[in-house]
Design a protein around this nucleic acid. Structure first.
Length: 220
DNA sequence: TTATGGATTAGCT
DNA sequence: GCTAATCCATAAA
């Protein structure tokens, strides 16, 4: 049986600064692989432990020139965060059931974002399972926690009401993105998943061979 | 005011 | 592999 926690434990985590996100979404997407998403200890939860998981799959979405991007509809109440300052959470509700998490990129006034599609849990696994409403009976069940954009949002308690528009840089908020000693390798690109427009563009980025990548994986 | 469709998931065949 | 579930934001009227 292959080891699932291939990306190791996370030690000290330092927040990414706003400048990290103030770039082309394709660059931000690639560099987000291997970084970690952190949900601070939440005393309101049944299991309040801090949740940490490594980013293993993302997709880049551009501005008006990308017909698959929500930003292509223009700056509306829904998409305002995409046009705001970089490093902020764009959370949307989809298919009547699921929330998805993006990070805004580019300077204020220019749209662009990165969709977080899959994570590898590092700590707070019981809290994630509790938020998902499932039980973990073995290593094989771990992928049910954070493999897929809707699943990871639920595992981290991410909702539009709670997190849309919040700052993910600086580490000041409840939800933030940071880095530790890990350095990503084996990055692959494929077309994006689940969209009907601009399906030819290879804007999905993943860590090759990682068991937590959603949908079709790529072998290392 | 109403109609439409979607950056998904779980469960079943 | 196939499909129902489910509801918000948008656009049309």
């Amino acid at each position: 049986m292959r080891k699932l926690l291939s990306l190791g434990q996370s030690r000290q985590i330092r927040p990414l600064d706003r400048a990290f996100f103030n770039r082309d979404p394709r660059r931000v997407a690639r560099e987000l692989l291997g970084k970690v998403l952190v949900r601070k200890r939440d005393s309101g939860q049944m299991n309040p432990a801090r949740r940490v998981a490594r980013i293993v799959e993302v997709e880049a979405y551009m501005g008006a020139e990308d017909p698959a991007a929500h930003a292509a509809a223009g700056n509306t109440a829904r998409t305002a965060v995409l046009f705001g300052p970089p490093g902020h959470a764009y959370v949307y509700f989809i298919y009547g059931n699921h929330y998805c998490l993006n990070v805004s990129c580019q300077p204020e006034g220019r749209a662009g974002s990165v969709l977080i599609r899959a994570l590898e849990p590092l700590s707070g696994i019981e809290a994630m399972a509790g938020a998902r409403g499932i039980e973990i009976h073995g290593a094989k069940d771990l992928t049910k926690l954070t493999s897929g954009p809707g699943r990871l949002a639920q595992a981290f308690g991410i909702t539009r009401a709670r997190d849309n528009g919040c700052d993910l840089s600086s580490g000041a908020g409840s939800l933030w993105i940071g880095e530790d000693e890990y350095r990503a390798s084996g990055i692959r690109r494929t077309p994006r998943i689940g969209i009907t427009k601009a399906t030819d563009k290879a804007l999905r980025y993943m860590l090759a061979g990682n068991a937590f990548v959603s949908g079709r994986k790529m072998v290392g």
